[in-house]
Amino acid sequence: MSRLDRHLGRVGTTAESVHAASYLARRNLARNGLRSTLAILGIIIGVFAIATLGILGSVIQLTAADALGGLGDQVIISPNADAGIERLTDRDVATITRAVGSDATVTPVVTGGSLVERGEARVFAALYAVERPSDIFVAGAGELPERHRHGAIVGSDVAADLGVDVGRTITIEGREYRVIAVLAESDGLNLLQPDGAVLIPRSAFADESYTQVIVRAESGSEAAAAADAVRSALNARTERVSILELSQIVARIDQFFGLLNAFLIAIGAVSLVVAGVSILNVMLMSVSERRGEIGVLRAVGIQREQVLWTVLVEAGLLGLVGGVVGAVVSGLVALGLFLVVPEVTLPVVLNVRTAGYLGFAVFFGVVVSLSSGLYPAWRAANEQPVQALRVK
Rank of each mutant, 00 (worst) to 15 (best):
M1K: 04
R6A: 14
S17Y: 09
V18A: 04
L24P: 02
R35P: 02
T37K: 01
L38G: 09
F48L: 15
A49S: 15
A49V: 05
L56R: 00
V59Q: 06
T63V: 13
A64I: 11
G69D: 08
S78A: 09
A81Y: 14
A83T: 15
E86L: 11
R91H: 10
D92R: 00
T95Q: 10
A104K: 12
G112I: 01
E117Y: 08
G119P: 06
I136D: 06
V138C: 03
G174S: 12
R175L: 12
E176S: 10
Y177E: 02
A181I: 12
E185S: 11
G188Q: 06
Q193T: 12
A225V: 04
A226K: 01
N235K: 01
A236D: 03
T238L: 15
S242I: 05
L246N: 08
V250R: 03
A251K: 09
R252E: 15
I253W: 02
L259G: 02
N261Q: 08
A262V: 15
V277F: 15
L280V: 02
L284C: 01
G295S: 06
R298I: 07
T310H: 05
L312C: 04
L318G: 05
L320H: 06
V333I: 14
L335E: 13
G336K: 15
V340Q: 09
P347I: 08
N351C: 04
R353N: 02
T354A: 08
V362P: 04
F363E: 09
V366Q: 01
L370A: 07
A380Y: 06
A381R: 01
R390E: 12
